[in-house]
Design a binder for these strands. Structure first.
Length: 303
DNA sequence: AACGCCGCCTGATCGC
DNA sequence: TGCGATCAGGCGGCGT
């Protein structure tokens, strides 16, 4: 599933290929991805427009677009959902099997958004951006807001890491990976994390995501027509994708395998209908001792 | 305001 | 072997 690192690698790859290209035509196969816009609105806005810039925020792709008849640039917000892919094609290449949106450029090239399940987004509505929490990398001050959000919630910390208003860009894979790195139990109630644990977790999230970005850029994958220079990897359930990606994860989808730190068997639990993987020995809950009405950190106990 | 739950969606895999 | 059931899960919306 595409999370922050996958989107970051994708954006770095796409940005130079899209910059300055003028859109001649827009084809839309699944209008649902445009919500709340209509096909007509989208086509009217984009045909004749030029892509100027592409950046990432959380798991969103932010396209900045200009038009001769508009004084100010506007924004298209993209999201890969669960199964989205995007690539730029040149020459005569067949459209990908599950293409959902295709932009033809005046120079003959093409931008393709492919999405098997159609959970992605492609919209002029930028309101989702305002609900995002702090960027976990390259953001020295975000830790404060992150820690504050954790203090407000009694939910398990794993669940909070998936909440994009708490921290932007973390998905199911890297939530487990970050908690393993920080040695924090996925079941620990968010508001019970100490200041030190919150700081450690924030740093682990940054570390795990940064590493994934580094690894992503070193891998090749030939997306239909995207070319072998794409420097992209894709995590999926097909045997090939798993082989490519699995080695990057220390706990994700490793139930029953030994923890690389302590050798204990990695476990899988279900939280909010999503799989969580963790090491039951490295990631034990603190056992709280109560002195009167005040919790005091005790030794690490069982889960 | 926090939180649980549902709907969306299709391909791979499971179970009988 | 065949086929229906189940699983995978990001996110917006809705009800409590």
């Amino acid at each position: 599933m595409p999370e922050l690192p996958e989107v970051e690698v994708l954006v770095r790859n796409l940005a130079p290929k899209l910059r300055g290209r003028r859109i001649a035509n827009v084809e839309i196969r699944r209008p649902r991805l445009l919500r709340p816009d209509s096909v007509a609105e989208t086509r009217q806005a984009l045909i004749g427009a030029t892509i100027r810039k592409l950046v990432r925020r959380g798991k969103f792709l932010i396209f900045t677009v200009t038009r001769h008849d508009l004084r100010v640039p506007f924004t298209v917000l993209g999201h890969l959902g669960m199964t989205g892919r995007m690539f730029v094609q040149s020459g005569k290449v067949a459209l990908a099997k599950h293409w959902v949106i295709a932009l033809s450029f005046e120079d003959g090239g093409r931008f393709v958004f492919e999405d098997v399940r159609g959970f992605g987004r492609w919209t002029l509505d930028v309101s989702p951006l305002s609900r995002l929490g702090p960027e976990p990398i390259g953001n020295a001050v975000g830790e404060k807001a992150f820690a504050r959000a954790l203090r407000r919630s009694k939910q398990a910390i794993k669940i909070k890491l998936l909440d994009q208003s708490v921290i932007a860009g973390v998905g199911n894979i890297y939530a487990s990976e970050a908690l393993f790195d920080a040695r924090i139990s996925p079941r620990h109630p968010a508001h019970r994390l100490t200041g030190d644990e919150a700081k450690r977790l924030w740093r682990s999230v940054g570390k795990v995501l940064s590493r994934a970005i580094r690894l992503g850029s070193s891998l090749e994958l030939d997306w239909e027509g995207a070319g072998r220079d794409s420097g992209l990897f894709y995590y999926g359930r097909s045997p090939d994708a798993v082989t490519v990606s699995r080695e990057r994860f220390k706990v994700y989808e490793r139930e029953g395998e030994p923890c690389e730190r302590c050798g204990a068997m990695i476990r899988r639990i279900v939280q909010s209908a999503r799989s969580t993987y963790y090491c039951p020995r490295c990631q034990r809950r603190r056992r709280l001792r109560w002195v009167g009405k005040t919790p005091v950190d005790g030794r690490r106990g069982d889960l």
